[in-house]
Computed example of a mutant assay.
Amino acid sequence: MAIDPEELGHSRSDLAKALRELRVQAGLAGDRLARRCGMTQSKISKIETGRTVPSLVDVELILRALEVPAELARQVFDLARVANTEWQDIRALRKKGLERKQAELAALDQSSSEIRYFLISMLNTLLASPEYVRASLAHVPGDTSRAAMKKLERQTVLYDESKAFTFVLTEQAARWALLPPRAMVMQIERLVSVSRLPNVRLGVIPLGKHIPESPLNTFTVYDSSLATVETETGIITLRDRRDIKAYRDAFAMYEGYALFGEEAREKLAEWSALFLGGL
């Protein structure tokens, strides 16, 4: 099913209207539907007025309780899938202030216990040196000092051993020369340092290795509840369990091609030597 970012906001109100109409057609009061679904009447009311976006499980429970025919249920479920997809336009994020996005990501870090990062062409905030963070913001208009500070503050979560982090990055991500050679050497040293943390697994995929699948986007999976996908113009947030499973499966596949532990650190040392050779 194609997802048009422009339609995501409309889908939420459309879903609320559809669920409300189905309940009325079934001749059920809100409190009776709530009892059948094991929900509160307040939750049903919030769903039907669009104040709460129901999860896919919530929608499935409601459709079963209303005994909605299979074809109509499929249409409503597809609508629910779109409603559970969020689009954040990069231009809008910049207008609001990138530090707000960092606060949102920090909250996701804190509320998750197992986080998987797949990085294609650049390193992410948790792996970046201060110089790399500043360079990654250099193209953004205006004062980015607060955003840089928030990015660096987020890195403290790596030392929370109640959480598990797995990073899989391509050689391109590790070697993309966002900085001059000497600073890139320091950046690679940071990757080595992070790879030694007890709750972190850091894997690298060298170029030249035969991989029958080709990745299209950088993505992150938080536990089994949420996935984010980065594009050139924004970020897609997915909550549909089928989408999350697809990205977890993709991550596991790429993870299988990566080098970890001492093998990864040896490869990072090779790439660092290439930068040193350019000095």
Rank of each mutant, 00 (worst) to 15 (best):
M1H: 15
E6I: 12
L8M: 12
L8T: 11
G9F: 14
R12G: 06
S13K: 14
A16C: 09
A16R: 05
R20G: 04
E21R: 13
Q25K: 14
A26E: 05
L28T: 00
G30V: 09
A34T: 15
A34P: 08
R36L: 08
K46W: 09
I47Q: 01
E60F: 04
I62Y: 01
I62N: 00
I62L: 09
L63W: 00
A65I: 07
A80E: 03
A83P: 05
T85S: 15
E86D: 12
W87P: 03
W87I: 10
W87E: 06
D89M: 12
I90D: 05
A92M: 15
A92E: 13
R94T: 15
L98N: 06
L98S: 04
E104Q: 11
A106P: 05
A107R: 15
Q110C: 01
S112N: 11
S112R: 07
Y117I: 04
I120W: 00
I120S: 02
L123E: 00
P130E: 02
E131W: 04
Y132L: 10
R134L: 09
A138S: 10
R146C: 03
A148P: 03
K150W: 02
D160W: 07
T166R: 05
L169F: 04
T170P: 00
T170A: 01
A177I: 02
P181E: 02
M184E: 02
I188F: 02
R190D: 02
L191D: 01
S193H: 12
S195G: 06
V200G: 02
R201N: 12
G208T: 07
K209F: 13
H210M: 11
E213M: 09
S214P: 01
T218A: 08
F219K: 01
F219E: 03
F219V: 02
V221M: 04
V221N: 04
T231A: 09
T233R: 09
G234A: 09
I236A: 14
T237L: 12
R239I: 07
I244T: 08
K245I: 12
A246H: 09
R248P: 04
E255S: 12
E255T: 11
Y257A: 08
F260Q: 03
F260S: 00
R265D: 10
E270M: 15
S272C: 06
L276C: 12
